[in-house]
């Protein structure tokens, strides 16, 4: 019984939040990795793209709410999501047309793209704060829980409760659908294959008649979708605040690099590696240990390896270890 309680406590505080957070990071890292694979630069504006996508979705959500439209137990934001993606796609395509395309025709080196993306980051950051403000925004509605801790206790008779938030459930389901669709698209459709070909060998792709501008356009649209979905899921789960999205840049890049930049499978693996390390290392294991250890050995402290204030240090240390020992990442990076 104690073992079961320990497992429930672990699921409640480590497994479920880890899976949800991992899915969010994986979606973010997929966007970064797509840009790296096709446009060949590290996009520092990605965190703020996620913030913009989430913001656009929130605005539409509010509009729908004011019209009295809702999805019942599900958050209205899901209904607003396609609109958010559309706005973000327009923004990214506009940015590409006005800013990035010039450097592409110049065949500028990736560092220049990176610095340009810093400028874009500034602009997007300003734009988001200008429109919605720098503060926290609430937009989650509908049923908050799929399983409530108290009901779970009453239902199972265990002393430890299990809470499963709607946002977590939606995150996992959405992530699975999106990732499955993306892999199908990249591996089975002609357009997806042409993107992989472009990423693999740009010159040969041109020789084969693949239109580079079309590939780039589709990439930005996919990135807009991935970033918006990741941003909205994160916002539903943990609340929306522009600055936290900027801070997500580090774990997202860590995830993409750990998996191997440019490798979609790597981005997903990296997302979960980073998320679980972060959650596990910053979780206080006192409760779990109290259940599984004999009373005489009960821990006195919190048994927390690192305080949650240092969660960024976890991504960072993993990043450093990967850079030291396997700079190409767990999966070989570069091509899609």
């Amino acid at each position: 019984m104690d073992l079961l309680n320990a497992f429930i406590a672990l699921s409640n505080f480590v497994l479920i939040p880890g899976i949800a957070y991992g899915s969010q990071l994986a979606l973010g890292a997929l966007g970064v990795t797509l840009i790296y694979g096709i446009l060949r630069f590290s996009n520092f504006a990605h965190g703020d793209t996620m913030a913009f996508g989430a913001m656009a979705t929130i605005m539409v959500t509010w509009l729908l709410q004011s019209w009295g439209i809702s999805l019942g137990p599900l958050p209205t934001a899901l209904l607003a999501l396609p609109f958010g993606i559309a706005f973000t796609a327009l923004l990214l395509l506009g940015t590409d047309r006005v800013i990035y395309r010039f450097y592409r025709t110049q065949k500028s080196p990736p560092v220049i793209f990176l610095i340009v993306s810093l400028g874009v980051m500034f602009i997007m950051n300003g734009l988001v704060r200008f429109i919605i403000g720098p503060g926290d925004q609430r937009f989650a509605d509908g049923e908050r829980f799929i399983i409530r801790a108290r009901e779970f206790k009453a239902w199972t008779g265990l002393s430890e409760g299990l809470a499963f938030k709607t946002s977590q459930g939606i995150t996992v389901i959405t992530a699975v659908i999106v990732v499955a669709w993306l892999f199908w698209f990249l591996n089975k459709t002609r357009t997806g294959k042409s993107m992989r070909a472009f990423s693999d060998n740009e010159d040969l792709a041109l020789l084969s008649g693949i239109n580079p501008e079309r590939v780039v356009t589709i990439t930005w649209i996919l990135v807009a979708a991935l970033a918006t979905i990741a941003g909205v899921l994160y916002g539903l789960d943990k609340g929306f605040k522009p600055f936290t999205y900027f801070q997500l840049l580090l774990p997202i890049f860590a995830a993409a690099i750990v998996g191997g930049l440019g490798n979609p499978l790597g981005a997903i693996t990296g997302g979960f590696v980073i998320a679980f390390s972060e959650v596990t290392i910053t979780y206080a294991f006192k409760k779990v240990l109290t259940y599984i250890l004999p009373d005489s050995l009960d821990p006195t402290g919190l048994v927390q390896l690192l305080s949650t204030d240092y969660k960024f240090a976890v991504s960072f240390v993993i990043l450093i270890i990967v850079l030291l020992f396997k700079p190409t990442g767990l999966f070989k990076g570069k091509a899609l």
């Binding site: 002609r190 294959k193 042409s194 992989r196 070909a197 693999d200 060998n201 010159d203 040969l204 792709a205 084969s208 008649g209 693949i210 091509a335 899609l336």
Partner: peptide
């Protein structure tokens, strides 16, 4: 660099016919 190394043989041919 005259092939798409990360793609299958069949996909290489498909891309040729793009």
């Amino acid at each position: 660099s005259n092939i798409f190394t990360s793609m299958t043989v069949e996909e290489n041919l498909e891309m040729g016919a793009f």
